[in-house]
Amino acid sequence: MAFRLNGVGLAYANGFDALKGITLQAAQGERIALIGPSGAGKTSLLSVLGTAWAPTVGTAEILDAGDRPRSAAALARLRARIGTIHQSPPIPGRQRAVTAVLAGRLGRWPAWKSLASLIYPLDIPGAGAALDRVDLADKLFARCDQLSGGQLQRVGIARVLYQQPDLILADEPVSALDPALALATIRLLIADAEARGATLVASLHAVDLAIGNFSRIVGVKAGRIAFDLPAGEVGIPLLHELYAGEGGELPVQAHEPHFLSQAAANDAATRAACC
């Protein structure tokens, strides 16, 4: 089992209920896409899975660690097995790409090794290999404030590839990338998870990317799970219902409507023409 959420609710300090009664579980090695309108609770759901927030109601068992690890050390051990790709890459501008990638293993390295690595990077081949997989091998020693937004996002992905976590969480990992690169990156994440038997949960803005690449689709709306189906069973009406209130349009990758029905593709084209 990768995780088991049981009746999870999450209320923020300002009283806003971000999640309500979420029950969801996944076997190790599953690949799940979260879709839903913005503000639906996708990021909150990923935060609970990533142990950033403890649920205010219900239980969350992550990676066989049980509900709520007992000690800070146990929590740190659990977190070292979870890799998160953030919406905006949390990397200091003055850090070099090599250091930013190596930071992925801080949870497993002893402290002396982490500190020594600041003086001379201790695993240059490892960081180079991870960056090579996102086509940035030539930026190994570049400072992150010299990279473009898309390149920086890929450094963040390389960090998680280098971390080799059992559970990969991705919060809109490709929203800063162009469509072709976005597709390649999603496929890379899936291939990596598949090869290592890791679980992948990604929230995606573009429904075509989700349905075309993931086996299981979870629709989230207003803090609840709207549907939880194999990709093949997610039809256009269901999607329109999920995104109702967003102007009747489905968010897709702008120029690559590969596999949505012709009607939906036309929809997107009309909208593109209007804007």
Binding site: P90, P92, R94, Q95, L106, L118
Partner: peptide, 28 residues
């Protein structure tokens, strides 16, 4: 900016490495 240090702690990094890799470069 707190995001970098928080992200490292969420990836299981202990306090002082998370500080050196995440917080310090932003404040240096």
């Amino acid at each position: 900016p707190p995001a970098a240090g928080c992200a490292l702690r969420l990836a299981g990094a202990p306090g002082s490495p998370a500080f050196c890799y995440g917080t310090l470069p932003g404040a240096a």
